[in-house]
Design a protein around this nucleic acid. Structure first.
Length: 154
DNA sequence: GCCAACGTTGGC
DNA sequence: GCCAACGTTGGC
């Protein structure tokens, strides 16, 4: 069982959209970065947990917890010419991009903001990848201690 | 394999 | 909208 942090822009796909989905479950699609792709494809397993992080919005931060309910499989949005994440270099025989399915487990009553996380950067959350300068990776692993500390903030 | 140019991310 | 940081592309 591993812990992750997954970023999404709420204007594109936020926690409310996941909450409104059937069974509160949805593919986490559209990841088009090789490092993140490799994690989705090779490291995500059923039962892993992830923080849902809202980026590029008024109050960036963690808004909830999701469970991984389906491990890595080919991202079908890459095969659809009508989709904004279409990638002509990906084929059914040789899929380039991968996704997982997530199910909403907890929708926090408040946002654990980036600002708040930063206040613990030099101590409890030291080394957390999200807080690294210039980090743009949309999926990052979390050590257990960081996961537990953030849960304790909720 | 180098690296300049370009595109994207994401906080502010 | 700005811009720093990073990833990708493609010529050489």
């Amino acid at each position: 069982m591993k812990y992750w942090l997954m970023k999404s822009e709420p204007s594109v796909f936020g926690i409310d959209a996941l909450s409104a989905a059937a069974k509160k479950t949805s593919p986490w699609d559209g990841v088009r970065n090789y490092q993140a792709r490799n994690m989705l494809r090779d490291q995500f397993t059923i039962g892993d947990q992830a923080f849902f992080y809202h980026s590029s919005c008024k109050e960036p931060g963690i808004v909830g917890i999701v469970n991984v309910v389906k491990a890595g499989y080919p991202d079908f949005t890459a095969l659809n010419p009508k989709d904004s994440h279409y990638d002509p270099t990906s084929t059914p025989e040789n899929p380039r991009w991968y996704m997982v399915d997530v199910c909403l487990k907890e929708h926090f009553k408040r946002v654990i903001s980036l600002d708040e996380l930063r206040r613990h950067e030099s101590k409890e959350l030291s080394g957390m990848l999200l807080l690294r300068r210039g980090n743009r990776l949309s999926i990052t692993p979390l050590v257990t201690a960081h996961w537990q500390f953030i849960v304790s903030l909720v």
